[in-house]
Nucleic acid binder design. Sequence first.
DNA 1: TTGTAACGGTCTAATATGTAACTATCAAGG
DNA 2: CCTTGATAGTTACATATTAGACCGTTACAA
Lengths: 154, 154
Amino acid sequence: MTLVLEEFLPYRFNRLAEALSRNASIAYKTEYGLTRPEWRAFALLGQKGTMTATEISYFSTMHKTKVSRAIFALEQKRWLVREVDENDRRLERISLTEQGKRAYESLVPKMQRVESELISSLGKENSEALFKGLTALEELYLDEKTASRSRKAD
Amino acid sequence: MTLVLEEFLPYRFNRLAEALSRNASIAYKTEYGLTRPEWRAFALLGQKGTMTATEISYFSTMHKTKVSRAIFALEQKRWLVREVDENDRRLERISLTEQGKRAYESLVPKMQRVESELISSLGKENSEALFKGLTALEELYLDEKTASRSRKAD
DNA sequence: TTGTAACGGTCTAATATGTAACTATCAAGG
DNA sequence: CCTTGATAGTTACATATTAGACCGTTACAA
């Protein structure tokens, strides 16, 4: 009995995830000096506006210490600010500065270009199949219930 | 202009890769005490027979130091042995011991069961779409040329 | 031969990540 | 009020991972 690693789903996903991330990271890493966790937190703040660190952790599925450090780095760059919530002083409301928003507006189109180039190279039929398969898998594995339990991954 | 992280391919792949790996790892981690790099090296050796460390690194797309440590751990378990190649004494020919082969024969069916349960939960249509999409992506990103250049990932 | 470049593999030092402890705050009950 | 237990976030320590130096080979051209 033999298992062919190249056909094994966890292996295929890991390899592709790594390749896609590396490919996408070129833009935010070389031009903006962001790490992957920083990019994720940044993208979420640009997408959703003001958030708490816990929310960022939830939506990015990153460990809270990773988020904490990513936020610190973005704060150093003056791309975000925090304000303590007056109603609950444990919370910090985090939002992009004007400078951060400008960076977002200039970075996001580049990221989207990478993605759309990828999709057009795949072709309509393949990319539709891919989306269908991914969505089905996500429904199976990453339901709210599951997602809220396992938030430590990168 | 907004980028929706939940729809961004690198993010989706990373999350799914993590979820699939975690799910698959239960079998080899709890019952056999293997780490992920160890499992990968082990699976390759079971699949392909005798290999060198560099070959394992190539096919597993793992960094060579990771492979080195994985091999060391499997050697400690007495699941593999190395012999220096007489023709080229830089090389070590690594292969599973009888004990290693027995472990392989008992572990692999469990891993395959996990995988086939996943696929049957997805249903025929979705899993076919998934495979089609994954294969297309792999051809685009992980061709020999590409794969041989970027071998550091996990 | 010998010098030089390349290779297989390991070891070391720097980075990145996760675990668990800690601070500060809040909420609810006595 | 005061205690107990939970939550938000940071920090310190332990672990895991990577980059790069390193050693012993080998290949091959001069």
